[in-house]
Structure formats: structure tokens, C-alpha cells
């Protein structure tokens, strides 16, 4: 996790090679001197590479890498809901309960999931497998009710679909 980070101040020593390459490719998409623009994509990359959440050490290292104040990274990480500042389960389930989904039964879907997993919104199952979140409209309202499991949308949900879906998760 973050223990392998040595904050020696040398850019090359921050992050592993693969992560560095990805970060550099993002930085190159912005004009010279605008590396801060890469903060959001960079936080996504780091979160993906570190069990789905961002430790303070990671964020500090990123600030150093981009040569911007640490507070600029913290501000962004705390503003956007996709960033996790505490450990999460192996898989993240985000259920939309906004209006179009609500009209199509997202409340039932939400309570079915809560019962099935034995946790409430914002919690992680005891085995560390799933974190369940309630989210705002995910832009898939014609498929209501829907959820996001890791990187994939699942639409027109029914309890049966959820059983199949969760049953298939390793």
C-alpha cells in the first residue's frame, strides 16, 4: 500500500514505473506549466493502483510529483465523490436513488441490496468484499433502476438480476 512510498523528494522515486508512465502521459495532455490539470486523472490512477482509496501519503506524493502544494490535492480529493479517503471493499457498488430511478423502484433495489449484503449505505461487508454507496444520478436514467459495480453500469435491475450479478463477482 502506501508503506512502499519513500518521500525522498526525488520524482523518480515516487510511484512505480507503470504508474509514472500513466501520470506522465496525462500531464502531457495539458499545456506546459499546467500540470495541476492532471490532478483528477492522476487521483483516479492512484486510487485504482492502491486498493481503491487514497491515503494522505499518496496524495502528498502526488503533490510533490506535480510540483503543487499538498493542499491543492487534498482540496480536490475531498470535493469529488468518486475519491475514497478511507479503505473500501474489493468491489464498490454505487446505487442511484435519484428521481428517475426512484420512480422505477430504486428504493426496493437499495433495500434488497442492503439486506442481501447485511450493510447500510457507506459501509463495507465484514469480509471486505463489497462497499455499498448511494449516489446521485449516474446519467443512465432510461435504464432505471441502475447501479455501478466497479467500472460497469447495470440497468433495469430486479432482485433476480442482482442475485446473478453478485453471484458472478469473484
Amino acid at each position: 500500500m502506501t508503506a512502499n512510498l519513500q518521500l525522498t523528494g526525488h520524482r523518480d522515486q515516487l510511484f512505480n514505473e507503470t504508474v509514472r508512465q500513466k501520470l506522465d502521459s496525462w500531464i502531457s495532455k495539458y499545456p506546459p506549466g499546467q500540470a495541476q490539470s492532471a490532478v483528477i486523472p492522476a487521483l483516479h490512477i492512484l486510487q485504482d493502483a492502491h486498493q481503491g482509496w487514497l491515503s494522505e501519503g499518496l496524495m502528498r506524493a502526488l503533490a510533490e510529483y506535480l510540483d503543487i502544494p499538498a493542499i491543492s490535492v487534498f482540496e480536490v480529493a475531498t470535493f469529488y465523490t468518486m475519491f475514497e479517503l478511507n479503505p473500501v471493499g474489493q468491489h464498490k457498488i454505487s446505487v442511484c436513488t435519484n428521481i428517475s430511478c426512484q420512480l422505477c423502484g430504486s428504493e426496493e433495489i437499495a433495500s434488497y441490496l442492503q439486506k442481501k449484503l447485511g450493510i447500510g449505505f457507506g459501509q463495507t461487508t465484514a469480509d471486505g468484499k463489497f462497499t455499498l454507496k448511494e449516489v446521485e444520478c449516474l446519467g443512465a436514467c432510461v435504464g432505471a433502476p441502475m447501479l455501478l459495480l466497479d467500472r460497469d453500469y447495470h440497468e433495469h435491475l430486479t432482485p433476480e438480476k442482482i442475485d446473478t450479478l453478485l453471484g458472478g463477482v469473484k
Binding site: 470535493f79 469529488y80 468518486m82
Partner: peptide, 18 residues
């Protein structure tokens, strides 16, 4: 990264600036 307000055009620019 998950913030409705970033759809507002000037918030979007701020977000694009990191």
C-alpha cells in the same frame, strides 16, 4: 470525478484546471 456542479460551465473550467 463525481460532482454535479462541474456541469456548470465555469465550475467545469475550474475542474479542468485541477
Amino acid at each position: 470525478a463525481g460532482a454535479y456542479i462541474c456541469g456548470e460551465e465555469t465550475a467545469l473550467l475550474e475542474s479542468l484546471e485541477g
